[in-house]
């Protein structure tokens, strides 16, 4: 996988969450993920096609996404419900859009599908293409989240 595909997703994640939810986000060290078990409680997954085919996912711990969505709505959210799932889908959508704009600047065109959302402890994330799954952990003052980027070899 072309590692130059990774950075736009990291940049987009930081920008989207800082702009829409006013949270400070710190990226950790990327690692190769071996299994399909999500590192958190709710995930947005989105397929991409273009110069390479792949998927991205964004998985949040409950405390983290409740704070993020509370900030986005200006009111306190207390539990993982359909409103949180909808917000995770839209956040995934925005991260994809922003990353695709940065990728376009380096001549890489992608189209995105409409995101799907999965919730539950230890849920699985199935990437549609066979390739290395690069996970990037992030931390905030209110919990952690992880993005995964998987493009065909």
């Amino acid at each position: 996988m072309d590692v130059r595909l990774i950075n736009p997703f990291i940049n987009a994640t930081i920008n989207v969450l800082e702009t829409m939810a006013f949270v400070t986000v710190n990226a950790g060290k990327p690692y190769l993920k071996k299994d399909n078990v999500a590192v958190g409680d709710v995930s947005g997954v989105l397929g991409l096609t273009g110069v390479a085919n792949g998927t991205i996912s964004v998985t949040f711990e409950e405390s983290c996404i409740l704070t993020i969505v509370s900030n986005m709505f200006g009111e306190t959210m207390n539990s993982l419900n359909s409103e949180i799932a909808d917000a995770v889908g839209e956040l995934t959508n925005m991260i994809s859009g922003q990353a695709r704009r940065e990728l376009e600047e380096s001549g890489k065109q992608f189209k995105a599908a409409i995101p799907s959302v999965i919730t539950g402890k230890d849920h699985s994330i199935i990437h549609y293409t066979e390739g290395p799954k690069i996970a990037i952990p992030f931390n905030t003052d209110h919990g952690d989240f992880t993005i995964e980027v998987c493009f065909e070899r």
């Binding site: 989207v16 925005m94 994809s96 859009g97 922003q98 704009r101 065109q109």
Partner: peptide
């Protein structure tokens, strides 16, 4: 919209959009 690649903007302008805001905003 999150769809702000150059071709999208051109298409929207040609279709008569009044203005354009890119997500996140």
């Amino acid at each position: 919209t999150a769809e702000a690649q150059k071709q999208n903007v051109i298409e929207a302008v040609q279709a008569g959009v009044s203005n354009y805001v890119v997500k996140p905003f």
